[in-house]
């Protein structure tokens, strides 16, 4: 049999021979018996083994975690959506809207027989209280949102729902001569307008600007105060 070719010697070194080939058993036997091929194989083996001593800088067992920590901010992950903002949040808004629309009509039209003034007042307070609670949650969520771009779709739609209700409540408060409540609702309306007209994918600077505005105007604080007064008054009625 002929001596082993360079390619066969290389395959023998790596164990990449093709066991099913007819030449394989012959080549194995030849390598075991032929001193010349053994010398050639040994020469190749020495060189390739020597290259194996070229090591790479060691990385510890925590390396994977380090890689992950550096990688995470770069991953295009789906932006977090607020869990509390779901379809069912629209239910109290719609109910509130109906109540406010009804009461607004009642307060502005000539008095007719029907619902008692105390009951009307109580319904209005409950509706206003609920409205302020939901507005407070939205504002608090926004003010406390982590910096950075975010999916703003839920906040926008929530603000739109609150906006219609807010408008009716502000008009009602103004007609009833409640100037301080009307003023806060007016401020709230402007903030809700801004949120409702923000892009669905809000950028970091836009979010920061909204947060700064709400904080500067002390809007969240004002809403909390009125809300707490209303709940107290509602309990007294």
């Amino acid at each position: 049999m002929n001596h082993l070719s360079e390619e066969e010697l290389t395959q023998a070194y790596y164990g990449d021979e093709e066991p099913e080939s007819r030449r394989h058993p012959e080549a194995r036997r030849h390598l075991a018996d032929c001193a010349e091929c053994q010398a050639a194989f040994q020469h190749l083996k020495t060189m390739l083994d020597e290259l194996l001593s070229e090591s790479v800088p060691e990385r510890g067992t925590a390396y994977g975690a380090e890689v992950w920590n550096r990688l995470l901010p770069r991953l295009p992950l789906e932006k977090p959506r607020r869990v509390w903002l779901r379809w069912w949040t629209a239910v109290p808004v719609l109910a509130g809207l109906l109540a406010v629309a009804f009461l607004a009509g009642r307060f502005t039209q000539p008095k007719t027989a029907g619902i008692a003034p105390e009951a009307r007042q109580r319904i209005l307070l409950i509706t206003l209280g609920n409205h302020l609670d939901r507005s407070e949650i939205l504002l608090a969520e926004l003010v406390n949102a982590p910096p950075g771009a975010a999916d703003f779709g839920d906040e926008r739609s929530s603000a739109r729902d609150l906006l219609d209700e807010n408008r009716l409540l502000r008009q009602t408060a103004a007609r009833m001569g409640d100037a301080s409540r009307a003023a806060v609702l007016d401020e709230l309306e402007r903030a809700l307008l801004d949120i409702a007209h923000s892009p669905s994918e809000i950028s970091a600077p836009e979010l920061e600007s909204l947060q700064r505005r709400i904080e500067n105007e002390g809007l969240l604080f004002k809403v909390r105060i009125i809300s707490s007064n209303i709940h107290r008054k509602g309990q007294q009625l």
Binding site: V56, R59, Y63, G64, A65, V67, W68, L71, L75, L77
Partner: peptide, 17 residues
């Protein structure tokens, strides 16, 4: 995300080498 983290942690050293 956790599953991808597992893969990253498992293969980082080999990829680095």
């Amino acid at each position: 995300q956790l599953a991808f983290r597992v893969l990253v942690e498992r293969h980082s050293r080999a990829v680095f080498r």
